[in-house]
């Protein structure tokens, strides 16, 4: 099971999904209307490391985080 967390302003509860890579996650999340405004501007981290490939493999117990646009300071 992979946990998917939505950080900052995204008002969505954590999901638990049976998926093996980020490509599968993209397919699942693109069907979710609540996320339409977020997917094109969110960065993605796996186990707190930012990733840049949809081929990134996911294993049981992994944690994926979606990070919307930031503005510290």
């Amino acid at each position: 099971m992979v946990r998917v967390e939505f950080l900052g302003p995204i008002q969505k509860d954590t999901l638990e999904l049976e998926i093996i890579n980020l490509n599968e996650l993209a397919t699942v999340l693109q069907k979710d209307e609540e996320l339409t405004q977020w997917l094109n501007n969110c960065a993605v981290a796996v186990n707190d490391t930012l990733v840049s490939s949809l081929e990134t493999p996911l294993n049981d117990g992994d944690r994926v985080s979606l990070l919307p646009p930031v503005c510290g300071g």
Binding site: L25, L39, N41, C42, A43, L54, P69, C71
Partner: peptide
């Protein structure tokens, strides 16, 4: 006023 982190949009369409 916010900025998308480099590499954002990976899961988008």
């Amino acid at each position: 006023r916010s900025k998308a982190i480099k590499g954002s949009g990976l899961l988008g369409d």
